[in-house]
Amino acid sequence: MTLRVLVADDQEIVRTGLAMILDAQDGIEVVAQAVDGQDAVEQARALRPDVCLLDIRMPRMDGIEATRTLAGPDVADPMAVVVVTTFDLDDYVYGALRAGARGFLLKDCGPRLLAHAVRAAADGGSLVDPTVTTRLLRAFATRDEPVQPVTPLTEREEQVLLAVARGLTNHEVAASLYISLSTVKTHLGSLMAKLGVRNRVELALWAYQSRRLD
């Protein structure tokens, strides 16, 4: 199945470049390009792409507000959003993830990581640029007290949680714990339900907030 992607960036040369990179990847097609956040929201609602790739700093509506509009906690049918930016600023990353983004990348991440993030988002996963992941999780671990689950985590769920928080993929989690891929996905679903989170990034953040990782 070909993944349909919308790219939004107010700089034409950047927007065109991102679109060319993604169109060159197997199984990915850019179906729309938006010049600002408002344009992105309107086109995304009309076309329902598999993934929206949004810049942070855009006129009329910035990428974080566009993300919240398309994928926020109050959206009945949220879309998959990956935010990409030139600016390695902690508040941007935190804001994007809290707004519902499934990924956060810097524009110099390279074609391979860009395609990986798009595919992960379309598959219900998430990816944050490795250059900022650990620093951000540690910094944001002190911002909020984590909500404790009503039903305690099982020993296996704790193991899956720590593996995900360390950045392992589903396949790597399965290999490290000697369990099947479907079992990993089952545990992830249970973890997200118990902890009230929506994606792997929020799972990792919860692990740091609850002091399961330093």
Rank of each mutant, 00 (worst) to 15 (best):
F87D: 07
K107W: 12
G125L: 06
V160S: 07
E172G: 05
V201G: 06
A141F: 12
V160T: 11
K185F: 00
A99S: 08
A122P: 01
R138I: 12
L168C: 03
G124Y: 12
E157R: 05
A99E: 06
P146Q: 14
A76I: 02
T86R: 00
M79L: 15
V84T: 06
R200P: 01
A80Y: 03
S180V: 02
V84P: 01
A71Y: 04
R166L: 10
L127S: 02
R98D: 07
N170S: 15
R138S: 11
R119N: 07
L153W: 05
K107L: 12
L161Y: 13
V83W: 03
L162W: 02
A141N: 09
T186M: 04
A193L: 09
P111Q: 11
G196S: 02
A117W: 03
A175I: 04
H171P: 00
F87Q: 13
G124I: 06
L161R: 08
H171Y: 05
E145F: 03
Q148F: 14
S126G: 15
K185C: 05
T151E: 15
P146M: 07
A163R: 15
A101D: 09
R119H: 12
L127W: 07
R135V: 01
L181M: 14
R98P: 00
V160D: 09
A120N: 11
L177N: 04
L205R: 09
E172M: 11
P111V: 08
V132D: 04
L97T: 08
G72R: 10
T134N: 00
V164N: 06
M79C: 01
G95H: 09
S126N: 05
E172F: 06
T142R: 10
R156K: 14
V201A: 11
L153G: 13
S126A: 15
S182D: 15
V83S: 04
V132P: 08
K107N: 13
L137P: 02
K194N: 13
A163L: 12
L191M: 14
T142A: 11
H187K: 05
V128G: 05
G167D: 06
R112F: 01
T142W: 04
Y178A: 11
S180M: 06
Y178M: 06
R135M: 04
S190D: 07
A174W: 14
A120G: 05
D129V: 07
S176I: 00
Y94Q: 07
G72S: 10
F140E: 08
L195S: 12
L127R: 05
D77S: 12
R156F: 04
T169L: 12
V147C: 03
E202H: 07
G124C: 04
L106Y: 03
T134K: 10
L70F: 05
P130Q: 04
A71T: 01
E172D: 13
D108A: 10
V147T: 12
Y94D: 11
V201H: 14
R143W: 12
V197Q: 09
T133A: 05
D77N: 11
K194T: 10
A96P: 04
A139V: 06
R112V: 14
D90A: 15
S126V: 04
D123Y: 00
S180I: 02
N199L: 01
V164I: 15
L106Q: 02
I179R: 09
G110Y: 08
D129T: 01
V128I: 15
E202V: 00
L114G: 02
Y92V: 07
F140D: 02
W206Y: 13
T134Y: 03
A71P: 03
G95S: 06
